[in-house]
Simulated scan of single mutants.
Amino acid sequence: MNYVGPDLGFVLPVDKPSGPTSHDVVTMLRRALVTSKVGHTGTLDPFASGLLLMCVGYSTRLSEYLVGLDKSYDAVALLGVSTTTEDAQGDVIDESRGWECLTADQVDEVLNSFQGDLEQVPPQFSAKKIKGVPMHHRARRGEFVDLPAQNIRIHQLELLGMDLPIVRFRVRCSSGTYVRSLARDIGAKLKVGAHLVELRRTSVGDFSVEEAVKVDHFSDGSRIERRSIDPLRAVGHLPSVEVSQIDVEKLACGNTIPFEDPVTSTLVAVSKAGTLIAIAEAGEGYLQPRKVFVQ
């Protein structure tokens, strides 16, 4: 029995520029690395830039454990103009000059009111699928879907600067939060409307865009190697446990192993000698393998 070893692949932090879609970046990386086994862990809109975590090789099997990580963004909203897409790419549907009467304290107070657990209605233009069809396809056909509000959490929302009608802010939020819709809702609460004009994702979980590879450097093998994230480190947000060779063999056969340690998560990263062996589910006194990385 062998560990998957180098073939386990890695997670690569990528700094997506404004313009290409997230899938475009996947295609670029597939060509550069000459492998079809590449996938991202959370879409960025084409106009947005910043951090994409790309799973490469066997590590594509880890993507489901990364998509739910919290994310941070730096954003710029334009007050007084509402658009169909809630960003600068849409058609203007309403305008107001009420922003001329706003003060920094009023804007800051409204931003503070959006911190915590919230319900957010997703935008009509998004990759969210309804009955298998992305919302942006439906919206372009002129369809309007009454979307239910989604539960989100805004951990931190900070006003970075204001030169009205421009407002710059930083947000750390749960996965599934639409910053475009946050800008829309801020504008609505200020009673002037708003849309997003710039968006940059600065972090995913504990991973920062400062550690990321730019798409222009995909052909630089040494840079890719330096910036790549080991699979065990990639799931570092999960509790981890080191096991014996006997337990490795049991997990590889799909069998449970004894486990008595208290954990704060139902999922556990199982390793041996610093190599990811499995993602397992913790039960009462045992670990049940969910995904195994030995052969």
Rank of each mutant, 00 (worst) to 15 (best):
E198Y: 08
R61I: 04
Q106E: 15
S36M: 06
P239D: 09
R227I: 08
D91I: 07
I186E: 08
H23F: 15
G142C: 04
I277R: 10
R290A: 08
N151M: 03
Q288G: 03
A234Y: 01
V215S: 08
D247W: 07
F293M: 11
A32R: 05
D108A: 14
S244L: 05
V121S: 05
D108S: 14
Q115D: 07
D7G: 04
N151A: 06
A48F: 03
L66K: 08
K214H: 14
D206Y: 11
V14T: 00
F259Y: 15
L238Q: 10
L182I: 02
D117Q: 14
G80Y: 11
T60M: 08
R138P: 03
S49A: 14
F169P: 12
A252Q: 15
R170P: 04
L238S: 14
L196G: 02
T266D: 14
M54P: 00
R200K: 13
P258R: 10
P17G: 02
V263N: 02
G80Q: 04
G285D: 06
A48K: 05
H217D: 15
Y73V: 02
D108L: 00
K189W: 06
F125M: 12
R30W: 05
S36C: 02
S265F: 12
S271N: 09
I279G: 08
P148W: 04
D24P: 02
V209A: 11
M135T: 05
R31A: 07
G50F: 11
R233V: 15
L8R: 05
G9H: 04
